[in-house]
Design a protein around this nucleic acid. Structure first.
Lengths: 334, 334
DNA sequence: ATGAAAGCGCTAACAG
DNA sequence: CTGTTAGCGCTTTCAT
């Protein structure tokens, strides 16, 4: 049978209000009464009903999170960063994956709204206009990770993709490479995909090293990295180094080269982007640009909870840019 | 300003009850009235408040999930399997990670209870007694994945670890290996860790091939695989094949061997367990036992929702054993 | 087919 | 310091 605050009140011989007060420390309660109530609660193993509380307070202590894909380790690491902070502040996480589907993003944002989440963390490309509109009307604080939104009031936690990609490219140049290929992200990604390519191009072009033939495009996956490299190998002269827009791509490309009998890094060097767990494990270990995923999550949730609890409307700086780092491993240097 | 069912009722010139009826199709409503209400809802972009509904129905349409670690790809794949099914049935997922901490498991189970989840999916070792007690009193349907519970009423979705590990070991024997080492899971894991080791031992012992010196123990990680292998290499004669209790371990061990200049599989062969994404990507690609993670998730949530909606108390079979498969790749055969 | 009213469990004025 | 009371937004008898 259900035990509620009412039963506790009766058993302790006080009013519901008093029980509520000891439960939340919201108002002074005399010590003996508090003691009595606490005892009853203990004995009955009573747990207050959070739903009722939420309704009363119009606050659910739920944070919604929308991301493209749960199976991708990149996203799980962001979640990791969020989780502990969240828990410490007594919120819970409602997670939703969209499989890169725009329709679904809109549906999910509505579901989360109905569920009454107190705030939203978004990890997606910025989406179409309908989605932007939905976002703008969400009515609760929102923070985005890794990608921009056209909604002015939404803070963004990101890294400097342009700078990071420049550094990676420059590093290959400094190593003495002349034929530097790139397996870039999909053209449909106007954010990181574009930025990283632009940076690559702008480093090579002034040196007369840029060559469109050496660039292939693909989704950020192992398979597309593999097939991208297959294509690159067919066009001689073969690049001596390849910059890939993600680690998974880089590993796919590298695996392709290795399967074809090329020596890495002697004949072809590879550099990735992200520094996922696999990167350091790989044989050869992958040189890459480290993104602080956990920190992205932590900062985002920190900011979000700030907004929720202090009701501040995007205070301070709207863009929070975290630092990346070039991690040099075996795939570029012996 | 908040728009509620009351406003809709007024605007449509009907009672709240009627609005509720059209919202849920719970009772017949005349066509013209329904039309009118629907129109108002459309115009006002009204979304019913799920919290209020939950309170009224004592049903939140929330499923809680407790797992050890979000960053581990194994677990994210289970979530993946759950997500889509869940969504289609109009539930949402409340996720919680325990970092392998028993205290935390208990706290989380309580939080989820307060939040009023309609059911619980558990991915953990079975935990201590306090935890078991908590589980038994949860009062809502629970399904466990991958590990057993002493609570009789809780269904378990699993694979046959013993059989799978036997097959893996036997496969190495069939390949002609005589010195087969094992990097086993931690002694503190009485479930998969023990099962897989027992199977390994029971295959080798009758053949006179079992040798305790060739077994090291460690946590299911890359690092412990690496250090385990370091230990194994020191004890000559070095094994010609190593069975590892997880892919991450196997890759750690393999990386160690490769770093030491051994040829894989020519000098030392490796076999893992799980078939995580990295396995096929690795160089050399890793032979392993495939676990159907997504399916584990899907089956578990299927069963859970069944229990929730049909209120059946662990009907049918309590144990659901999914099939594994040996995936042969480069780390054991050329 | 529709409306009035009670109630889900909790919190928050408002009195005292 | 404590109790009374009125909601929070929705569903659901029970009448009509």
């Amino acid at each position: 049978m259900k035990i509620t605050i009412k039963e506790i009140a009766e058993l302790a011989g006080v009013s519901k209000a008093t029980v509520s007060r000891v439960l939340n420390n919201s108002k002074p309660v005399s010590d003996d009464v508090r003691q009595r109530v606490l005892e009853v609660i203990e004995n009955t193993n009573f747990k207050p009903n959070a739903v009722a509380r939420s309704l009363s307070l119009s606050k659910t202590h739920l944070i919604g999170m929308i991301l493209p894909d749960l199976a991708n380790p990149v996203f799980s690491r962001i979640i990791s960063g969020i989780e502990s902070y969240l828990r410490a502040h007594d919120y819970s996480l409602l997670i939703t994956a969209t499989d890169f589907d725009v329709e679904m993003k809109i549906r999910h944002i509505n579901i989360l709204k109905e569920k009454g989440v107190d705030g939203l963390i978004l990890v997606t490309d910025h989406g179409d206009e309908a989605f932007q509109k939905e976002l703008a009307n969400f009515g609760k604080p929102v923070v985005m990770i890794g990608t921009e939104s056209s909604v002015e009031s939404i803070p963004v936690v990101q890294i400097d993709n342009y700078k990071a990609a420049s550094e990676a490219t420059q590093y290959l140049v400094d190593l003495g490479h002349k034929r530097i290929g790139m397996i870039r992200g999909p053209l449909s990604d106007p954010y990181a995909g574009k930025m990283r390519f632009d940076a690559y191009k702008s480093v090579l072009e002034p040196l007369g090293l840029f060559c469109p033939e050496r660039v292939v495009e693909g989704w950020y996956s192992f398979d597309e990295g593999y097939s991208g490299m297959t294509a690159l190998i067919k066009r001689s002269p073969i690049p001596t180094a390849v910059f890939c827009s993600s680690d998974l791509m880089a590993i796919g490309a590298m695996k392709c080269a290795l399967d074809q009998g090329y020596q890495v890094p002697d004949e072809i060097a590879f550099i990735g982007f992200d520094d996922v767990q696999i990167a350091k494990m790989y044989n050869p270990a992958l040189t890459t640009v480290r993104q602080p995923f956990e920190e992205k999550g932590r900062i985002a949730i920190h900011r979000l909870i700030d907004m929720i609890e202090h009701k501040q409307k995007t205070p301070q700086d709207r863009f929070i840019t975290l630092s990346h780092r070039l991690i040099i491993r075996q795939s570029t240097e012996k």
